[in-house]
């Protein structure tokens, strides 16, 4: 099973465009592909793929609950909580679920065994089927409940749901940035495709993303969206850093318009298919080259 993560430092550079079009193309070519939408704060793949027969499973985190009959208000729970998620006022214990990291310290260390843990739902994992002419594939989507602050448990649940057997290729659409939810999305990938645009903002954030991928000991290639806008500093940077550019998607108003309507480029502008086909060949070569290296 090949695991390819699609990420970017800057948001809005075309991660989702790349992921949904590549998934559709691979399904059309007869690959057993599964797409994981791990951008759980703003998951958008489904808008382009229209999955059907969706099932939904809650993502639960554990939070402490106090048994008042046993609690002596000794404050051990508040003292051991590294996240200020539990406090004692007078003789009552207050839990702030949105601050809790579910580390399990307070129930384990409470001398009166007055705390137990209960589930709290912070998101959903949806699984649906996407039909392509002659084939279909699975889309697994993580959705963080609006108002919830912590995406990582939902990201982990999407990965867990998506990485079972039954697919040759697992594509992961990661959130933007370089922090924890991104790490959870790209961890274990055979290759990370970093999507950028050739602008100063795009380049600045690409540098951060490359730094992140290298800190994780993973390998990256670059896909440039809106090629032709901006300047050539991004291409020069990739050359200097030895980063292969696997796709240059031109800056074309027809692409932007098709995207705005939620259309797949491989369908709306079939002449672009070959760009995605050649990108896939380069991705496979990059992974293979890595494997034969001593």
């Amino acid at each position: 099973m090949l695991r390819i993560a699609v990420a970017s430092g800057k948001g809005g550079t075309g991660k989702t465009t790349l992921a949904v079009n590549l998934a559709a193309l691979l399904a059309d070519q007869g690959h057993g592909v599964r797409l994981l939408d791990a951008d759980v704060e703003e998951p958008d793949c489904h808008l382009f793929l229209h999955p059907h027969d969706e099932s939904s499973a809650p993502v639960d985190v554990l939070i402490p609950v106090v048994d008042d009959a046993r609690c002596t208000a000794c404050r051990v729970c508040a003292d051991v909580c590294a996240f200020n998620a539990i406090t004692v006022i007078g003789s009552s214990v207050l839990v702030f679920p949105e601050l809790c990291h579910s580390c399990g310290a307070c129930p384990l260390l409470c001398p009166e065994s007055a705390l137990h843990e209960e589930s709290r739902t912070t998101g959903q994992v949806r699984r649906g089927t996407v039909d392509r002419p002659g084939a279909s594939f699975e889309l697994v989507t993580g959705v963080l409940t609006v108002g919830e602050a912590k995406p990582v448990p939902v990201t982990k649940a999407v990965r867990a749901a998506g990485e079972r057997e039954g697919a040759d290729v697992v594509l992961v659409d990661a959130p933007p940035g370089t922090s924890c939810p991104v790490i959870e999305s790209v961890r274990g990938a055979d290759l990370v495709v970093l999507v950028t645009e050739p602008t100063p903002f795009g380049l600045n954030d690409l540098r951060l993303a490359v730094e992140m991928v290298r800190a994780l000991g993973l390998r990256a290639v670059v896909a440039i969206n809106r090629a032709g806008v901006g300047d050539d500093r991004t291409l020069r940077y990739c050359e200097e850093e030895g980063l292969e550019v696997v796709l240059e998607l031109p800056d074309d108003r027809r692409i932007a318009e098709a995207y705005s309507r939620g259309e797949l480029l491989v369908d709306a502008l079939p002449e672009l298919r070959q760009l995605f086909e050649s990108m896939w060949r380069r991705i496979v070569n990059a992974v293979t080259a890595q494997e034969v290296r001593p």
Partner: peptide
């Protein structure tokens, strides 16, 4: 925001937070 299906979808979610 931008007039794209994803821009609209993401705006809806973030405005729920703002209204909260």
């Amino acid at each position: 925001t931008e007039p794209t299906v994803s821009g609209r979808h993401d705006l809806e979610r973030v405005l729920q937070v703002v209204r909260g």
